[in-house]
Amino acid sequence: MIDFLQNTIDGVMTGASYALLALGFTLIFGVMRRLNLSYGPSIMVGAYLGTLAHLHLAAGPLGVAAVTVAGAVLAGLYVERLCFAPMAAGAGIAAMVSSFAIWMQLEQAAILVLPRHTYPFPPLASATAWLGPFLLRLDQLIMLASALVLALGVQALLYGTRFGLALRAIIGNPTAAHLVGIDVRRATVLAFALASAVGGVAGFLVLASDAQVTPMFGMWATMKGLIAMMIGGLGSIPGALVGGLLLGVVEAQSQWYLGPQLRDLAAYVLLFACLVWRPGGLFGAAPVRDLARGRSL
């Protein structure tokens, strides 16, 4: 029982990082109805810049965090400009494939700058504490708190501000959003930047708790964010949170009881089952019609 609870705690902590990744992902998808495969690699570009700042400028955790977030936003805007902005309404698949091509590009650029397989990443806080029989890590608590705060923040932004109203209008109907005077292009770019910033925070916290960065991080971030987003429900903020936490817990339990090899398998079984039984995800509405027809991907 203690094992089970400790696994659950560990899972929730790891899941918090998935939730953060899914949060940025779902924001982009919600507003653009397009899949940005370069989401993880853009975060990695930020993380590599952060690592450079750490190695050459001896930047501390906060400095590295700032560089990582800023780098992720810049890389995200580059992706938006090249893969999404120029694409016409019906070219969702082309945009997705284009973002995949840029993924390859960003990954190789990162490897060119820092060619070794692993580099140290400054840890945020390595303190641990016992809560009764349970072991807690401070950096993971920070991650969980960040996930909750950012999810609440994004939710408040969407439902409580003028910018949020604009974003929800674009999600509802882009043409009508134009017609009521919303600058759709500007709002979309801002949403993209915001999502990349959330991803940057996620990337920083994950890497700080691993204390290292590898070129595999981009793919890892895209995959974990995508899985958590799909489990929770596309475009849903509570869904991103719950999807991430659920994925974390399922991974932690299966790692403990079934072994590391079956851990990833369990995650994909969960994803496949969720898609087949509840295609809209746990929190999403049923897929909308134009989406169902695969038009806008």
């Binding site: 899985i227 990833d264 398998l265 994909y268 087949v276 897929p287 989406l291 027809r293 695969g294 806008s296």
Partner: peptide, 20 residues
């Protein structure tokens, strides 16, 4: 009955299951 991204991710999940 899955379409668009839902189908794409379901096939991805299946392929990863096969690989694992």
């Amino acid at each position: 009955r899955l379409h668009g991204l839902y189908f794409a991710v379901a096939t991805l999940a299946f392929a990863e299951m096969v690989r694992l």
